[in-house]
Design a binder for these strands. Sequence first.
DNA 1: ACCTGAACACCGTTCAAGT
DNA 2: ACCTGAACACCGTTCAAGT
Lengths: 216, 216
Amino acid sequence: MTGAADRIRGRPTLTRGDVIAAGARLLDEVGVEGVTMRRLAAALGTGPATLYWHVRDKDELLVAILDDSLRDVVPPSAGPWDRRLVDVLQQCRVVLRARPALVLVLWSARWDLGPQTLRVADTLVGLVADSGLPDVEVADAYFALFSVTLGTVSAEVHTPGNVYPSEATGTATGYAHLDRYAPGTDPARMDRRFDYGLRVIIDGIAARVAAGSPPG
Amino acid sequence: MTGAADRIRGRPTLTRGDVIAAGARLLDEVGVEGVTMRRLAAALGTGPATLYWHVRDKDELLVAILDDSLRDVVPPSAGPWDRRLVDVLQQCRVVLRARPALVLVLWSARWDLGPQTLRVADTLVGLVADSGLPDVEVADAYFALFSVTLGTVSAEVHTPGNVYPSEATGTATGYAHLDRYAPGTDPARMDRRFDYGLRVIIDGIAARVAAGSPPG
DNA sequence: ACCTGAACACCGTTCAAGT
DNA sequence: ACCTGAACACCGTTCAAGT
């Protein structure tokens, strides 16, 4: 009784790929907290126990969905290192914003991630290295860029349309600097803020490279 | 029947402060995933329903614990803006590393946070403003520093002793840049990485300020 | 004002048993 | 090899009822 034979009749055998694809679809439909082993099973017309034949646990499922999502990230083949870097990180942001649950998977920073995830990470680290930074600094600089990218997604996803109180009410809140510089996280601002974050880090990298050896 | 009168006898009345303090203690003892309304109730010798008289829900409890934890963060009273900034962020890192569940609360970036949390945020934004950056850029630069701080805690807390495979096994993994630049997240490395992340952003800020008007 | 018991509507995971 | 039902050991939250 192979899956293929089954698929010819009305009773298709579930594959690991089916489970992951359905998981991704569920993530898109019901959001972060809606993804449940039981709900996923129901969407596949089976019981929760069945899923555990195809994936070890919920965490492995999320790692697999992340990997599948990153398949579409394709680095540009030409251009200066910083433009290519920003381009790839922008693609990552788009992918992660659509499936915010995956941010937590990436934060855990284990290295038993899928091949697509590692491919993207490898690409990014390579582009940072192209800056001319000393070898020991490459991973550290990569981490800063990575943090800003995941941070942007985290901030914009949890509370869309999130304006700092003094802007909304027009009255001061008693926190002078917050009132003045308005660190809200509404979508329009996060677009600018993401680009700015990457830019300021890239400027910092360029300054170090230009200085020849690391200052301060 | 006031709380004070009760406390004189053996039957002290529970206060909101008691619940929050016990919550913080539980967080320290059992870690992120161990903090449960039911477990917290048990630690206080009562049932879960009782807690809901003192806090609206679990989220409000975590916001309150975060705020209480940040009470100890005290900005240095003198020194150049960048040294003070790094000092405060380092204190934040220490507090958050002890209670990693709170990182998620901060990422959600709502503004109905406690007074201590807003005080620390206000201080940090003020210090960034002291750099001389144009007003519109202050919140953006703050966000980059904030991201690296929370990112560092996230990465080091989820998987302590997390070395990239090629370092552990001595064999290449097929990802050339990852193999070469070894982006592991073990504690010793995260110490350096945190400082580096802040440094590279501060250098970027300084470069912008020096340039007079923002480049690129 | 403050607390309680009991319930509602869920979770992730395991495991013996089926085909 | 793959699936199932039923159970285990939990969750957060609500609510009528008690003192």
